[in-house]
């Protein structure tokens, strides 16, 4: 039998260095993203003849470049929030269904089914949106416009399929799986003892969930929603095909208006001049900062609860 050699190995130092360096590379990449976006945005921002943060129009390719993030940031925020409002209740329902309602045997298979929604690429949702959802949404939109026009967001004289509502709906479908997956993990971790205690005291299933599961899961659901929000804001290709690409600020979500930072980058890149590219990079920087903020907020909510650590992975 061979005896192991009892000496410090020469390989230990380099290996430790290599793995530590890899971790640092990740930090460097994150920093570099910010630095290079800033550097390449500056020339365009200097050539801009208007105020970047408040200007609505986007005309960076003109000889006198005029562009601003106003309308795009508005569209990004509104479409993502509408998506969040639509997706969160459904996702929480799905999570509860899988964690507390579905038969044990089927639960994981059904959960996988919802996860499949996340596996469908963005561009396929875009294609589906343009070919199916846009024409399909005409009649429900007209219905909302006809009977609920007194609610300002449903007002307007013209109803189109390529609207803010349709884009938000596609976003909602795309962020549903991530919200559902995290909520499900959190609901599954709710203390079993409290659930059984509630049932033993005669609570119905809903009362048990309301008393033992939801209070425990609330921070997890908030985190899930924030992560979904971040994802909706960065979503590009699906909404690039659906948004009518206007540069106005309007709350009328059924009319032909709406755009987002990401969609504008995808649609505007082809014909962009060097200044135009710089302008798109500047808008990307704004998007990067917004998503960074939302994601950091999400992580801070989750970091306070150690028991969630696995759910967010």
């Amino acid at each position: 039998m061979r005896r192991p050699a009892f000496r410090r190995s020469r390989g230990d130092g380099p290996f430790r260095f290599l793995s530590t360096a890899s971790g640092i590379v990740l930090l460097v990449i994150m920093a570099a993203i910010g630095v290079f976006l800033v550097v390449k945005a500056i020339p365009a921002l200097q050539a801009n003849t208007s105020h970047f943060l408040t200007e609505l129009t986007w005309n960076p390719n003109a000889t006198q470049p005029v562009f601003g993030i106003g309308a795009l940031a508005f569209g990004t925020l509104i479409s993502s929030f509408i998506a969040l409002i639509i997706a969160t209740p459904v996702a929480v329902g799905v999570a509860l269904f899988i964690s507390h309602y579905a038969p044990r045997r089927l639960a994981s298979a059904l959960g996988y089914l919802v996860d499949l929604l996340a596996a469908v690429p963005s561009v396929v949702y875009g294609l589906w949106g343009v070919a199916f959802l846009v024409p399909f949404m005409l009649s429900p939109s007209s219905f909302l416009n006809k009977y609920f026009a007194w609610i300002p967001i449903f007002g307007g004289d013209q109803v189109v399929g390529k609207s803010m509502l349709t884009a938000s709906l596609v976003l909602a479908i795309m962020i549903l799986p991530i919200i559902a997956a995290i909520s499900r993990e959190v609901f599954l971790q709710a203390p079993r003892i409290q659930e059984e205690a509630a049932l033993a005291l005669g609570a119905t299933r809903w009362e048990m969930i309301r008393m033992a599961v939801l209070p425990f899961g609330r921070p997890g659901v908030i985190t899930a929603a924030l992560l979904g929000l971040g994802r909706a804001m960065g979503e590009t290709i699906a909404v690039a095909l659906i948004f009518p690409a206007t540069f106005t600020i309007s709350f009328r979500i059924l009319s032909a208006n709406g755009n987002s930072i990401a969609a504008n980058i995808a649609n505007g890149f082809g014909e962009a001049t060097p200044i135009g590219r710089g302008a798109l990079i500047a808008s990307g920087l704004v998007l990067f900062l917004i998503t960074l903020l939302v994601n950091t907020a999400a992580r801070l909510v989750i970091a306070r609860r150690k028991e969630y650590a696995r759910a967010a992975a």
Partner: peptide, 18 residues
């Protein structure tokens, strides 16, 4: 964790800029 949330279009813009 934060990197998980970097939008794909931003990573594209970064490689474009860099």
């Amino acid at each position: 964790d934060v990197m998980t949330g970097v939008p794909s279009v931003v990573s594209g813009l970064f490689i474009l800029a860099f």
